[in-house]
Write a protein that binds this DNA or RNA. Sequence first.
DNA 1: TCGATTCTGGCACTCAGTTTCAGAAAATAT
DNA 2: ATATTTTCTGAAACTGAGTGCCAGAATCGA
Lengths: 211, 211
Amino acid sequence: MTTARPPLDRSLPLRERKKLRTRRALADAALRLFTRSGFDATTLEELAGEAEVSKSTFFRFFPAKEAAAIDAEAELWTAYLAGLSGRELSGPVLGELHQALAAAVTGLGPDWDERFVATRRLIAAEPALLKYVEHYRAGVKDQMVASLAGKLRLDDGDLRLHILAELTTTAFSLSGRDWVRRGGRGGRAALLHGFDRAVQAIPASLGLSAS
Amino acid sequence: MTTARPPLDRSLPLRERKKLRTRRALADAALRLFTRSGFDATTLEELAGEAEVSKSTFFRFFPAKEAAAIDAEAELWTAYLAGLSGRELSGPVLGELHQALAAAVTGLGPDWDERFVATRRLIAAEPALLKYVEHYRAGVKDQMVASLAGKLRLDDGDLRLHILAELTTTAFSLSGRDWVRRGGRGGRAALLHGFDRAVQAIPASLGLSAS
DNA sequence: TCGATTCTGGCACTCAGTTTCAGAAAATAT
DNA sequence: ATATTTTCTGAAACTGAGTGCCAGAATCGA
């Protein structure tokens, strides 16, 4: 049972709607083909063919073969960064980051859950995708740091900002991993609950002692 | 002024010594050529030629073009993981990880500083290398978690272990960045001092508040 | 409808990475 | 020293990702 993708915004110019359709077709085809036949065994020609476009066109939408497969993950972080930049911070920063991420998850389209689960399954199975998503998340962290540095009037190199960014993405990724492992059961509420728990584990981990 | 590489262990069989020589030649050539001409502009043929071997041989020593350039970084983490696995833990885990890493740094050969600085400079300049090293460090974190899980009789998926591993690599990488930015001045003592400061910034970052 | 703008397909090209295999070199046995 | 076995290397052909280029198609604005 697959959740249908929401309709495209009718107010958009024709050309833009077409681009969005192509983008979706490519991302969907990537998820489908990589899952069915494996990442390496699927060539870009096939993938592009499945979406009725040429290889050249593929690279106009995605910078790499891997990028099409992690589109659902990218959607989340894009929404998160946008939400973060339009947010005024007050109180503990880690809490703010936590809330901003929860808000971003909540705001995503209804078809996101399913695509995200499929994406993470693929990432767990394909080393090439894991490598790519690690790199992608590193970029997200950099943007978080830049955004926070601006808001808090701190230096780009401030260790605390890097640590907070690191902790936020790590906590979310780990809770996402568990959620996906359970097949996405419980929906986003369950995902967000796991994320809460992960954030709470942070101070606990600093106190961890041996024997 | 370049620090000469230490002589090879005479007790090793001839064949092994030759392999080590080739490996060094390739890693050194990578650092030299990538620095001089750029990562993309240097082909594997040139690189292999510089070390007097064929392209095939290159791939018998390194899994990717990038790997030869980050050999100094890999050396450190390999020593660290080895030291960690032969260490019995007592007291706060973060402190143990901190000490194990400091010990690994101290134990490296006298030529390491220079190669590490060159490596990190290259990484800062070449996105492809940054991507690769991010992936490499992720592998190190996984091995840390596995090692700790074994020693502490905890689950592989324990959030606290992942967070501690993440924090350790992040703290070191950030302090390494600063050290390299200052040209490696002060030697390893300076590097380790920066690392101490970074580790201390961890609890501080959790308390960071806005306005 | 027409002209300007933007997007697409097709093609040729580079180069990283893999595979295969025959021959060189080192280790081992005689 | 010589023969034998094992391990390593170089050469060459191959796959496929990613790039650059250009002619023609689709869209937009008037």
